[in-house]
Design a protein around this nucleic acid. Structure first.
Lengths: 224, 224
DNA sequence: ACCTGAACACCGTTCAAGT
DNA sequence: ACCTGAACACCGTTCAAGT
């Protein structure tokens, strides 16, 4: 008899890639330490040498996917933003579990925060004021990100970023700029959710009013 | 000795109200049939006489909250839509578990579908074309609903509605109108997600371009 | 009609032990 | 250094039995 599976030793990357494939095939709810272990031909406890716990495993899955997002190749903020949104949409369609995985966390992973910074950078570098960029990102919501920035459970991402601003400013300049700007408007140093919400709502109502006036049949086209 | 808790017999409503209070206090993840039973001073299996299973319990919780949404009192589609959005936001803040509860389902509950119909009605009755209303609802996304209409797992809500259109048309005229209109544009009779996405993206990019041009400092104000 | 007790098939995770 | 076995404290849910 031959040994069919040449048991390469497990490592963090193999565990995470297997978990991604598992969730792609059966969904996040079906992803279980025991099931994943069985898939890898190993006893459940073997996974815990490579992954702290299930929360850590899911974090690794998120980072693996988000780190693979493409950097836009076009020039011009609209074209680049468009590329990013469509790319994010594509990734979410490949990994339908991604959105709820990201939203299940208390705070964004470092990789997700880096992505948020890159997107903010596109708009800030285009010359848009920092507070407007902040609003714009909320308005794009989960269409941009493939998830909802408001959805983090702790909702404390912005203040915690603001606290460590000096250390983070170099690595995540745009995210820090937004957090600091938003914090300067409130006593607590946190993002003013109500003001932010009101802005987005008005922005959308205004856009609908324009649709109404013009009787557009197929919507505004910016490119092509 | 007195009997301290006058054990009123359980009923569906008491079970659901207790579950809502439980989730409000500890979150949806902590809501467990066993824990809820303990809270009610009853053995876990007693709950199953009033609720088919946990899925049914959560459905009941959703319906209880959404059924309590206020009908707007203002006149004019913008003011009414605004009222609805702010009311939905308020409810989600009271019941932080609501959004993920709704999104965890394969399809909207009847009560949620009725709410969607009411909101669609505001815009359709304002004179906006049905396909534009469809787009507008997607653009409002979870800010309007307190959840994301795209997020239903089956994503098959629209086609299934279209199939039963004749029976449903009376009860849910606006939702049916949107489903039928969207279905008429595609072979499958399903909503054309890509076209819908492109429209929303363009709408938002256009709104940002206007912000850019005008250098708005505090956003557009429509009311007050 | 309504509630109970014991059981089944699952979870994530620990600890001490194997190689 | 890496994997295992047995166990612990949980889940949702079934079935047959109690009152």
């Amino acid at each position: 008899m031959y040994t069919v599976s040449t048991r390469r030793p497990l490592n963090r990357d193999r565990v995470i890639q297997a978990a991604v494939a598992y969730a792609d095939a059966r969904g996040l709810d079906e992803l279980t330490m025991r099931g994943l272990a069985a898939e890898l031909g190993v006893v459940p406890m073997a996974l815990y040498k490579h992954v702290a716990d299930k929360y850590d495993l899911v974090g690794g899955m998120i980072d693996a996917v988000v780190a693979s997002y493409r950097t836009p190749t076009e020039t011009g903020w609209q074209a680049r933003l468009r590329e990013r949104v469509l790319n994010a949409r594509e990734r979410v369609s490949w990994h339908p579990w991604l959105r709820s995985a990201i939203e299940s966390r208390d705070a964004p992973t470092a990789t997700v925060l880096g992505y948020q910074n890159a997107v903010a950078g596109e708009l800030i570098e285009s010359g848009l004021a920092v507070d407007l960029v902040h609003h714009a990102l909320h308005a794009l919501g989960h269409r941009l990100w493939g998830f909802s920035p408001e959805a983090f459970r702790g909702a404390a991402a912005a203040p915690s970023v603001a606290e460590q601003a000096t250390q983070l400013a170099e690595r995540l300049p745009y995210v820090v700029a937004i957090a600091v700007d938003a914090g300067s408007r409130t006593r607590s140093g946190a993002c003013d959710d109500d003001a932010e919400f009101a802005f987005t709502l008005d922005l959308l109502l205004d856009a609908f009013a324009r649709l109404h006036e013009r009787g557009w049949e197929s919507g505004p086209r910016l490119s092509g």
